[in-house]
Design a protein around this nucleic acid. Structure first.
Lengths: 95, 95
DNA sequence: CATGAACATTCACATATTCGAATGTATGGA
DNA sequence: TCCATACATTCGAATATGTGAATGTTCATG
């Protein structure tokens, strides 16, 4: 009974964390770009016009949440969407 | 050119604000309940087990964002979803 | 108009988030 | 092994957010 409610509450909490992760314009722009194709950090920084450190910080957040995946190529690191379903979430929340 | 980019950025910002509004477990639970049928504040407070003031605060946030609509009936106020599409957003962000 | 019920708002505080600046780390090449 | 490049992390400050406690407001009723 209450267990069901508690289970629901945990789901709402998880859901809220995902929404929180999407609740930043820079991260949304990065996800938009990664939705088209994988990108290196430098490219994300240049395309968005943001500092590299800031991009790395946002990437770290999204990595921890499992939204994004990193793959090293020599000295560069290529990021891609870990689960393209986030694009659905982005699409639905648009305008 | 840059105007297009700027326009996109504004959209990302709006989108981020919506996500931010959804980024709270209590609000998600309230939206879930309102998705089934309109509810009075007291009912929302009792069903979620949260204090009335807290519920009103969250309702105020969602009212400002235009997610929720209020309709007074005597001394009670009934809330409903202003745009049922938010349910889609909620559904997509669920695990 | 006094009262109680239902709801809203304000204030204060704790916590979280974002960002710039600075610094650290890993990799490939000279 | 030294250096430059690409990226990550840490730190501190500013700002935002969530919450409880207290207080205000609105309305129906007597």
């Amino acid at each position: 009974m209450d267990d069901v409610i508690e289970r629901e509450r945990r789901l709402f909490t998880l859901q809220a964390e995902l929404c929180q992760t999407l609740a930043d314009p820079t991260r949304l722009e990065m996800l938009y770009l990664l939705g088209k194709r994988p990108r290196r950090v430098k490219e994300l920084a240049e395309t968005t016009g943001q500092r590299q450190a800031k991009i790395s910080q946002h990437l770290a957040v999204m990595r921890q949440r499992g939204i994004v995946r990193a793959e090293r190529h020599g000295t560069e690191i290529e990021y891609s969407l870990a689960d393209p379903r986030v694009l659905d979430a982005c699409a639905v929340t648009r305008t």
